[in-house]
Design a protein around this nucleic acid. Structure first.
Lengths: 202, 202
DNA sequence: CACAAATGTTCTCCTTTTGTTCTCATGGAG
DNA sequence: CTCCATGAGAACAAAAGGAGAACATTTGTG
């Protein structure tokens, strides 16, 4: 069983690998966790290795290999065909062997939940009033992430997170009519990170 | 067998595990129950362990393991909890009996397919370049629908359909930089109607 | 190749948090 | 009245979390 910090460490590594194709450095992990000690991070890595989640190539930079390649405990759901291009002139038809997208796999995971967006603070990023967003529960987030955050334990807002050099954070809306607001780090409590958005018409 | 509070405690633990994949801390349980004493919570846990519902890893943080493994929801289905509001101050938690959204149900149907949007013609409606859209195959559409259409059997475009009094149709982009284009009805071939849109981050 | 910087590894020390075990108090039901 | 479920909270041991020094290797660069 993993501790909170070990879990966050593993999530960050998985995220890093998924997005960039290689593992992070200890220093990057520490920075993501908001701590300064590489030694502490290394302790977490040892625990993760003991639990069978990663393998460490001793001594090597970025020598973390992700094992256990995620047992998808999400049952496969119904799929829709993904059409790359619509053939000119011909009525659209599903081509056998075409790519299929499984919406469940796409969105569902443990530690995620759905929120209905209220307001237009992120409208210039294409997130409209009334849209649904999928949020992954997480206490830490990186610069540039879109987060659900509480300020002074008040109502939750959806904003882009900007980490400033002096340790403060700025919550940046995607709406020219609204101004970015800067806070000391203690006042901002991150509840989760935006992983997807969807909307129904009709 | 169990008292009211023990039952509530067990329900909360089960919910927590189902939604996050790990057990809550005594403090979190206490907060959920509206009490302040971890000692009292611990008494409930002892009772639950004696009744065979959980196993406690002594001393460990989050060291509660659910036994009696619930039958049906072992495989987390295609649903995500829908949270209406985020409780001020408290970490987000799924409220039992909360709404659940089934993503497959939400999007999938026969006669539908997915397209990746190219270009920014509908950007002011929140449909960005690279977004995925779910389209329902249909040859006819109503005034105001967003449609996938071919003009002169040429490349497909995503536009809002406007039916004019004289029988012509206008394809209206949601982008100030682009102009609506008017065609005779024969030149416009409707391939389908937009029913949903989604987008993944990270 | 040689060297400096960066990275990973190990270690000790420390603070905070968590779980655990108590005792005491309260209030309702039988 | 007693029984019992419930809660508060003190006290303590252990776990979790973090800092940082010291060292070994790797990595990158001229």
């Amino acid at each position: 069983m993993l501790t909170d910090r070990e879990r966050e460490t593993l999530a960050y590594i998985a995220d890093h690998v998924a997005n960039r194709g290689y593992a992070p450095k200890l220093r990057e992990i520490a920075e993501h966790l908001g701590i300064r000690s590489r030694g502490t991070v290394h302790r977490y890595l040892r625990a993760l290795q003991a639990a069978g989640h990663i393998r460490i190539s001793r001594g090597r930079a970025r020598g973390i290999e992700l094992l256990h390649a995620e047992d998808p405990d999400v049952a496969p759901g119904h799929t829709l065909p993904l059409l790359g291009r619509i053939a000119a002139g011909h009525p659209i038809e599903a081509i056998p062997g075409e790519d299929e997208v499984d919406l469940s796999q796409f969105f569902v995971d443990v530690n995620r939940f759905v929120l209905r967006v209220q307001g237009e603070s992120m409208i210039e990023d294409g997130i409209m009033d009334g849209d649904m967003v999928v949020v992954e529960r997480r206490a830490v987030a990186d610069d540039g992430d879109i987060v659900v955050a509480l300020v002074d334990s008040d109502e939750a807002t959806l904003k882009r997170l900007q980490r400033n050099a002096d340790g403060t954070v700025t919550l940046v809306p995607a709406n020219r009519a609204m101004t970015p607001l800067r806070y000391s780090a203690e006042r901002v409590q991150i509840q989760g990170v935006l992983v997807a958005q969807f909307r129904a018409y009709r």
